[in-house]
Design a protein around this nucleic acid. Structure first.
Lengths: 241, 241
DNA sequence: TGTACATCAGTGAACGCGCGTTCACTGATGTAC
DNA sequence: TGTACATCAGTGAACGCGCGTTCACTGATGTAC
């Protein structure tokens, strides 16, 4: 029976070993993510091994250290959030800028609400003693890319009304120019700075909601509140029209 | 000599014991806060005792458990942040609404920048397995009280222009009414909802700055960026004029 | 002012756990001829 | 297709640590008379 399965598996992974390795790697990560919910970012390799029915040292065949496992989780989370949000935005007519913005905001929030501990991992307090390696940067910027694209496209479509740039302090203009340059350099500083506001606002709302800052006061109609805040921000940026 | 000191101390604390107890309690908390920076919210009573040159069980004379110590820290932090911000706002002419708002925002950020791990404790990811008791609510609401007062006073001064309330969805209005009722009930929902935006924005900016979300992109002129965002929010709420 | 008793801070040992990581090893799987 | 050798997943023991909390105790400080 194992041999039969082996042949079947060879279609997807070169060898049985490679396939099993892939599966176990995922299972370790899945268990680790369940641990996140209960214990936060203080993963216990021994507890994971126990749950797998393995000896603790066996986990080292899959991840060279606890921090590497943590990095893998972080990258997965960024990618899942990125993918979910890209998909949400992707279903909207590209010319519908307000729709894209709403899809962006709700996409992020929906993922966060269904994966609260994962959201906390990537957007909560930094893990003490952990230094995120370069590999996390790409996945982490998938969501910001979406918003930059939205603004670029808006500019291309002539969406934003002209504004006097020199109202903005020089130092802020410099920062905005740096961000803008990441997205082709077409976004005016005055638009960018409001985009930053909106971007921060979205994550601020989600963080406050998930971390309990709205508890007992603002937590009864959070969907509607979030949606309305999104719409106000769209107006503020100039995406509503 | 000890006896002499004892008499002197009796002026502030009834007995030597009471005085020493007070001092040691503070010292334990001080050491715990230093631990926060290095290890996050996973306090180690044994490490604290070690640093005090005491046996680990001695700490239990001061705090009945680790969670109680954590609660004490959280309350202290809320109070310090509250006091610092109240003081910052208090130095401004009460009729200068923009000034009060700027003092509020910068007050919070200044404290956060000088106490990053303490800020993470109270505004970062919830500590797994820890349930904040009722005693934290009062201290925690000191900052929000400031902003509610600011809005109330603004209303009393006729600062805000009339706006159609019925643009706001019913569900959001209900939430806003609940918040408003905490502050005497004079703040219109349309003002309140923008106040929430601004409030979330302030903490969102600080959280992103401290937790490294601006790293390598927006971190060179953060003072100016924050200040400008504050001013935009003031305008958005209607405090700027 | 002096003595008797009560309070309570700090000790030291113990309970019953936990952890990450290394290393020599067995035995199954995979590869090359 | 069959055999020889290489790879590598998982074992089990060990190293050297860590932790919160309880409890009976000593001895100093505080209180009441």
């Amino acid at each position: 029976m194992l041999t039969k399965r082996c042949y079947a598996l060879q279609m997807t992974a070169r060898t049985l070993r490679a396939r099993v390795r892939k599966e176990l790697t995922s299972e370790i990560k899945a268990i680790a993510r369940r641990q996140l919910a209960a214990e936060g970012a203080n993963l216990s390799l021994r507890a994971i091994a126990r749950e797998l029915g393995m000896v603790s040292s066996a986990v080292y065949r899959y991840f060279p250290s606890r921090d590497d496992l943590l990095t893998a989780l972080i990258i997965d989370c960024y990618n899942e959030l990125g993918e979910a949000t890209e998909h949400a935005v992707g279903t909207v007519d590209p010319a519908d800028f307000l729709g894209r913005w709403l899809a962006f905001g709700h996409g992020i929030r929906d993922w966060a609400l269904t994966h609260p501990s994962e959201y906390a991992l990537i957007y909560g307090s930094p893990v003490p003693g952990y230094q995120a390696p370069q590999d996390t940067i790409g996945p982490a910027s998938r969501t910001t890319t979406l918003i930059l694209d939205l603004l670029s496209d808006g500019v291309a479509a002539g969406l934003f009304t002209e504004e006097e740039q020199n109202q903005i302090p020089e130092a802020v203009r410099v920062e905005m120019a740096r961000v803008t340059s990441l997205a082709g350099g077409t976004i005016p500083e005055s638009v960018m700075v409001r985009g930053v506001t909106a971007w921060v606002q979205v994550f601020g709302m989600i963080t406050f909601e998930l971390f309990g800052r709205f508890a007992n006061v603002l937590d009864e109609h959070s969907d509607e509140l979030f949606d309305y805040q999104l719409r106000m921000m769209a107006e503020h940026v100039g995406l509503a029209r």
